[in-house]
């Protein structure tokens, strides 16, 4: 099967049941997408499939045939997506482990809703756990990115 990851076309011939997460991490060595639960419960593994935020830990390779996959490494060629900039301005990360997933999840929110309210942010982001507790800064960073405040 073929798929496209961050604009690059890829051929995969392994176990079709293997989740995308392990293809990214173990075979492509793209470790920006993290493992946190393996059950679509924490959001650490979030990527975009044809623009939709998706938990790669439970998504079998069979389901991504012919799809466009975007990971944190490919969100922006210069790693300067407005959210990446806002994350830096608000000093969001602590340990950083959840943050790839947080940014990918937030990016899909801004793509469909340019100015989300607090409630919309909370409901869109509630599947992404941060054990370091960076939630207040995640909210602030999403808001400032949505307002186009980041330089």
């Amino acid at each position: 099967m073929k798929l496209t990851i961050n604009g690059k076309s890829r051929q995969y011939d392994g176990d079709p049941q293997m989740p995308l997460l392990w293809y990214l991490r173990d075979e492509l060595h793209m470790t920006g997408t993290k493992y946190g639960c393996g059950m679509s419960l924490c959001g650490a593994c979030t990527v975009h499939i044809d623009g939709q935020p998706t938990r790669s830990c439970t998504l079998p390779m069979a389901a991504v045939s012919g799809k466009q996959v975007t990971t944190i490494e490919g969100l922006d060629a210069n790693h300067a997506h407005p959210l990446q900039q806002a994350w830096k301005e608000h000093n969001v990360p602590q340990c950083g482990y959840c943050q790839s997933g947080q940014i990918m999840q937030a990016a899909s929110l801004l793509a469909k809703n340019a100015a989300p309210s607090d409630e919309e942010i909370d409901s869109h982001m509630s599947g992404n756990i941060c054990r370091c507790g960076t939630y207040p800064r995640i909210r602030s960073a999403i808001k400032s990115a949505s307002k186009g405040e980041v330089s």
């Binding site: 993290k34 944190i72 950083g96 943050q99 790839s100 940014i103």
Partner: peptide, 17 residues
């Protein structure tokens, strides 16, 4: 470490290859 974190360019224990 912030540039590495927001671009996914980090190596945690789980990431070692």
């Amino acid at each position: 470490d912030i540039d590495d974190v927001v671009s996914g360019n980090t190596t945690f224990g789980q990431d070692v290859q």
